[in-house]
Design a protein around this nucleic acid. Structure first.
Lengths: 249, 249
DNA sequence: CGTACTGTTGATCAAAGTCAATTGAGGTGG
DNA sequence: CCACCTCAATTGACTTTGATCAACAGTACG
């Protein structure tokens, strides 16, 4: 089930490649090409620092290798709305694929290690590793499906279900890249950030989390989210994982 | 600036080609290739009928030539959430580009004329009309930007601003394909659909529309949305058109 | 130590949902 | 032509949810 720890010591498969394998079987000969591309142009970013600025015509996409980031947009009153969380293995700024400028900002929620892939390198990848390249588009579609589900979450679910649903999603997405146990995951999120992503106030988020802990067994403490009963959590929040990987109906 | 009217009489440029020209200059020699592709596989769909079913692994994308459609997802309690409106010139179901099945349903809001483009035809297009093909990806990114803005709309704006913002967006998008005047556009939307898209109840939508008419001069009557003062409407709803075409910051 | 951020709690209030009914237009069958 | 049906729009009364305002406690950190 889990990767051989010996191998991990030498070079563990990146989170990105783990993720892509869920969409498409990535051929063994393409794997090292991806690994090399990711090694090429890495960067470390401190928590709270900006990974991708708003309005810049970007020339490279950004792959999160380690840590969390959030995509957000500044609204006219100065406040910000979180639009997406980027976890290890996620790709930020598909806009860069075409050289479009970003209408959003991406900031590090923890210390982040990222790999940048220029458009040139992407073209190379398309030529030498077609399956990987195709899987990247798959990843783009997946992130849109997630975006749509967030809309549903905010538009239709009450506060508790909403928070619970988001936590279930994060847990599932992290599990896809081996970053979650069956019943818990580490998270750098503050209550305020969690609430912001769900379109609710920090105070109400706090009360909602208490309620979730008491009644559904979902707890958030010391940077760890813990599910007493993951199936119950899924049922409670109406979480249907299929949208994440576009797994048919 | 505008296409030769002589040409328009013979075959007016499709809404799609009008839209694409906002992203990229489409070369004159690629224009007829796109037109031919769109002529190939057309379909008429009655209002309320399903254009694209949920869960089907789709092999073709769908271009709206005439009429409106809505993308929606059925929630577990049986109700539905509208995730996007597709206007003339819009492309539905980018998932089909990779053969992924759709996690959503697309239904006609009016009688719709659509063109289907199979994956095979898309590949041909990519070979013979590269600029057009690239513009299609641009269109995909644009529709994501719109999706994100909807999230912001629901998460952060009050009912009146929310409805007003959506109406401003629709007006602007229609104007891009020549389907709106400076101050009005025809719309097949019911109040309930409009409200659903904004995550609010039909009753509240009704009251909100009254208020908008009285205080901001935005009216919806007899299938026509009319703005007394479009700039005032933009200011009121905090509408910044740039996200629609990804026009830098 | 002060400063800043995060989490916590209580009181109050406004926004929007829900329930219930009514109106009016359009369409259909008798 | 009229009775009947359905759907969209409308209105009022009531209830619920969650935002806002205002403190305050715990912790990390310079």
């Amino acid at each position: 089930m889990f990767a051989d720890s010996q191998v991990q010591l030498r070079e563990s498969p990146s989170c990105l490649s783990k993720k892509l394998s869920h969409y498409r079987q990535v051929p063994a000969d393409e794997e090292p090409i991806l690994a090399k591309t990711l090694r090429q142009n890495q960067r470390s970013t401190q928590s709270r620092a900006i990974l991708i600025e708003q309005g810049e015509p970007a020339a490279e996409i950004c792959v999160i290798l380690k840590g969390w980031a959030s995509r957000q947009k500044i609204v006219s009153d100065g406040s910000r709305q979180i639009l997406a969380f980027h976890l290890p293995g996620d790709i930020c700024e598909f806009n860069a694929l075409l050289g479009a400028s970003s209408d959003t900002q991406t900031v590090a929620l923890s210390d982040v290690r990222s790999a940048r892939i220029t458009r040139r390198a992407l073209n190379e990848l398309a030529a030498t590793a077609p399956k990987v390249s195709q899987a990247l588009w798959w990843e783009a579609l997946s992130s849109n499906a997630i975006q749509r589900e967030w809309l549903i979450n905010i538009a239709r679910r009450g506060a508790s279900e909403r928070i619970a649903h988001l936590l279930c999603e994060l847990h599932y997405r992290l599990s896809l890249v081996g970053a979650a146990s069956d019943t818990a995951f580490a998270s750098p999120l503050t209550q305020a950030q969690l609430g912001n992503a769900c379109g609710m106030s920090a105070e109400h988020t706090n009360r909602t989390l208490r309620k979730l802990r008491d009644t559904v067994g979902i707890g958030l403490e010391d940077g760890e989210v813990r599910f007493a009963d993951i199936d119950a959590a899924h049922r409670y929040s109406d979480f249907d994982r299929r949208y994440v990987l576009l797994n048919g109906l």
